[in-house]
Design a protein around this nucleic acid. Structure first.
Length: 416
RNA sequence: GUGGAUGUAGCUCAAUGGUAGAGCCCCGGCUUGUGAUGCCGGUGGUUGUGGGUUCGAGUCCCAUCAUCCACCCCA
């Protein structure tokens, strides 16, 4: 007795019921993103490790402890991509598109992060992401947000809320950061242990600490949105004006922080209360410095990514396609003939399953379980007369009709 | 990486430390070519895995693995 294999921890199978949801989501993304002029790209799952160290930042959890990283047989340091933006920028530069005007891309694919699995958090998960290169204005920020909003709207998911913030820019963030650190240091004693380490590592992170006693200390903490430089302020104001004009509901959340180093100015999240601790369903923001950081010309950009599995959890079951007709073959003598009939029906555009033979009862049970609308009985009589005995499984009525008529009948009853 | 909960048939769950069961599902049958309800029968388990305590462990103890939930972090 050999041991059965299991999928790797936190890496799950996409079974038919899952994939139906995924496809539903992907189809919505394709439709909506097309309306905004975005084109799909398919980028590598394996990338040089250095790409992420440079792009995301070596101090981040993602890079420092969550990457599937290894040396391949040729001695190259490579890893499974933990997110999609870094690779998109790499591809954008590699293809020499910096002088081709703004580029509007989207992608759908697996990402890998070696974290402890929990609800809405897998080690291999899928993201639907959009990246828009070469645009700097608040207009594009509004459009990107409107596109994200339209996408989720298309899915019909209720009770989502959009939260926005500005992270400032290299001109105003350092001064704000100093002010915040001073504020936090004055309250060191009252903050939790993790927050104390965050003061040096990533002080902004303290702002969204979940510990109540910490939040109590932060009621009048300085917020980035009230320390923006005039350019950032103008940008933020225009973003808000755009959202208002499009009547997209939003909430300014000064506590939104980005874990990844490359973000600046606009940052946003769309969250649900229905997924426990992993309620962020879509998140993104502006990353004006990343392309230059990767060695390209200074190029502004904005993007977002949505978690496919998280969205899927918010969707009801999606019914699979049902066959129109099941072939029930009676007797050995019609074996080959029944196969031909099945294909003839398929060529005519019907979805056909073949019940495989055996007793009529067995085959009817099978057909019933598949919830087909019709059963076409093929026996010696039918073979001789080139007819089918077509039974409507809902009404129980059955009639003998020519094969061609059966095709028409089955197709008409189940349109799509 | 840290903490908590849970692992018994394909699924949902039973079984005072004393022979592992039920329901559903699945397979076959209830005369010859007709399904959903009915009746009969059947397959299926080294109780996640490995140790230990005991005359005896599904049950108690330890370890390990997996799943779930939370922290951390993030989509």
């Amino acid at each position: 007795m050999s041991e059965q294999f299991r999928s790797i921890r936190g890496i799950h199978d996409g079974l038919p019921a899952d994939v139906r949801r995924w496809r539903y989501i992907e189809d919505a993304a394709q439709r909506v993103f097309a309306r905004y002029g975005f084109s799909e790209v398919r980028l590598p799952v394996l990338e040089p490790t250095g790409l992420f160290i440079r792009s995301i930042g070596s101090d981040t959890d993602i890079v420092s402890k969550e990457m599937y990283r290894f040396e391949d047989q040729g001695g190259d340091d490579i890893c499974l991509r933990p997110e999609g933006t870094a690779g998109s920028v790499r591809a954008y530069l590699q293809a020499g598109l910096t002088r081709s005007g703004s580029q509007r891309w989207f992608y759908i694919g697996p990402m890998f992060r070696r974290e402890r699995p929990q609800k809405g958090r897998l080690r291999q998960f899928q993201q639907i992401g959009a990246e828009w290169f070469g645009v700097s204005g608040p207009v594009e920020d509004v459009e990107a947000l409107a596109m994200a909003h339209a996408f989720l709207n298309e899915l019909g998911i209720a009770d989502l809320s959009l939260e926005i913030n500005s992270l400032g820019c290299p001109a105003c963030r350092p001064a704000y950061r100093e002010k915040l650190v001073a504020y936090l240091q004055a309250r060191r004693q009252s903050l939790c242990d993790t927050c104390n380490t965050r003061i040096e590592k990533n002080p902004l992170r303290v702002l969204d600490c979940k510990v109540e006693s910490c939040q109590a200390q932060l009621t009048d903490a300085p917020e980035m949105v009230s320390h923006l430089c005039s350019d950032c302020q103008t940008h933020f104001d225009a973003l808000i004006a755009g959202l208002e004009a499009l009547k997209i509901p939003y909430r300014i959340n000064p506590r939104i922080v980005r874990g990844l180093d490359y973000y600046n100015r606009t940052a946003f999240e769309i969250v649900t209360g229905k997924l426990g601790a992993q309620g962020t369903v879509l998140a993104g923001g502006r990353y004006d410095g990343l392309i230059e950081e990767q060695g390209g010309p200074s190029t502004p950009a904005i993007g977002f990514a949505a978690g496919l599995e998280r969205l899927a959890m918010l969707l009801p079951d999606i019914p699979g396609v049902q066959p129109d007709v099941a072939i029930v073959a009676i007797g050995e003598s019609v074996r080959v003939y029944a196969l031909k009939i099945a294909n003839q029906l398929r060529r005519g555009g019907c979805r056909v399953i073949h019940c495989g033979g055996g007793s009529a009862k067995r085959q009817f049970k099978l057909a019933d379980r598949e919830q087909v609308r019709f059963v076409a009985v093929v026996g010696e009589d039918e073979m001789k007369s080139e007819m089918l005995r077509l039974k409507d499984m809902q009404s129980g009525e059955q009639t003998d009709i020519p094969v061609q008529d059966a095709i028409v009948c089955c197709k008409r009853m189940t349109p799509s």
